[in-house]
């Protein structure tokens, strides 16, 4: 499934990942949740929001690539994700160039 989907139509297709991978993925996500909750309790000041956001982004990436199978999709899907990230960065970035310098 990693290349053109049309090729493998009549072949037997199995899931991209087994049960074990999903349990490992879930365990990692729970672990990261524990870290983010602990980090919030440490009162790290200004960088605490950055820590929280970085962990949230790591968690989101894990969900996207493993639970949502993006890892096994072709380039088209990866580009779609890049476009969204670029669009959101531009929206937020441009807004701040306005609000921060008023």
């Amino acid at each position: 499934m990693s290349h053109d989907a049309g090729h493998h139509h009549d072949e037997v297709q199995h899931g991209p990942a087994g049960y074990g991978t999903y349990f490992l993925t879930w365990f990692t996500l729970v672990f990261l949740t524990a870290i983010t909750v602990t980090a919030a309790g440490l009162h790290l000041g200004a960088i605490s929001v950055i820590v929280a956001l970085v962990i949230a982004m790591i968690k989101a990436t894990i969900v996207l690539f493993l639970f949502m199978h993006l890892k096994y999709e072709d380039r088209l899907f990866h580009r779609l994700l890049l476009i969204v990230i670029a669009a959101m960065t531009i929206f937020i970035g441009l807004t701040f160039t306005d609000t921060l310098f008023r």
């Binding site: 999903y22 993925t25 879930w26």
Partner: peptide, 16 residues
């Protein structure tokens, strides 16, 4: 997070 796991497992189960 648990519901995401069970969701992914349900799809894996259909594959099996």
């Amino acid at each position: 997070l648990l519901s995401s796991l069970t969701m992914a497992l349900s799809i894996a189960a259909t594959h099996h």
